[in-house]
Simulated assay, not measured.
Amino acid sequence: MKKYILSILLTLFLGATYAQRGGERYDPEKLKAAKVAYITTRLDLNANQAEKFWPIYNEFNDKREAMIREMAELNNRRDIQLSEEEAKVRITKKFEIQQKLLNEEKLFVDKVSKVISYNQIFLLNGLSRDFARYIYQRQRKDRQ
């Protein structure tokens, strides 16, 4: 029953997300709420788990996104000619960021394993990607 209610809420949030608002294609707050509903439903989190899970997840996700942006900046402008030394520095920096990302993920798993099961953590791994895919498919469907 809980899954059905959350699915309905998710659908309502997603429907509202696509409403035009000031020329934007989506409302970031509504999209975030839809993602929370999607992940909460898929992980089958109870209220107590969700209350403890989301602050840990949000902190990790913010750090993760910052590191991904940093790596993207290193890869920007690949068309310019780099000296061998500059290319080496960028590659080394990329490896450092990837190691830092791995370390952060290990810390996240350690923290969140006190709140949810390892099976739920394992499922979480692909849920953000699944949510993005779901949004993309809905957008394509709405355009047609």
Rank of each mutant, 00 (worst) to 15 (best):
L82I: 01
K106L: 02
A72P: 00
Y136W: 12
E73H: 09
K111T: 10
A87V: 07
Y118D: 01
N75D: 14
I91F: 12
A87S: 15
M71G: 10
Q99Y: 12
D130W: 07
Y118Q: 04
N125C: 00
K106Q: 04
N125Q: 14
L107C: 02
D79L: 02
Y136D: 11
G126S: 12
N75T: 13
V109R: 14
L102H: 05
I80S: 02
R129L: 11
D130F: 08
I91L: 13
K114T: 03
E96C: 04
A87Q: 14
Q99P: 08
I91N: 09
K111G: 05
D130R: 01
Q99W: 11
Q81R: 08
G126W: 05
D79Q: 08
Q98D: 08
Y118L: 00
N125M: 01
D130I: 05
L102W: 07
L124A: 06
K111A: 03
E96M: 04
I135Q: 06
I97C: 02
S83M: 13
N125Y: 11
L107F: 04
E84C: 06
R78H: 15
G126K: 10
K100D: 05
K93M: 14
K106I: 04
R133M: 12
F95A: 11
L107R: 13
E86G: 10
S113L: 05
K100Q: 00
Q81F: 07
M71T: 09
K100Y: 04
K111N: 06
K93D: 14
S117F: 07
I97M: 06
F95L: 13
N125G: 08
L123G: 01
E105G: 07
M71C: 09
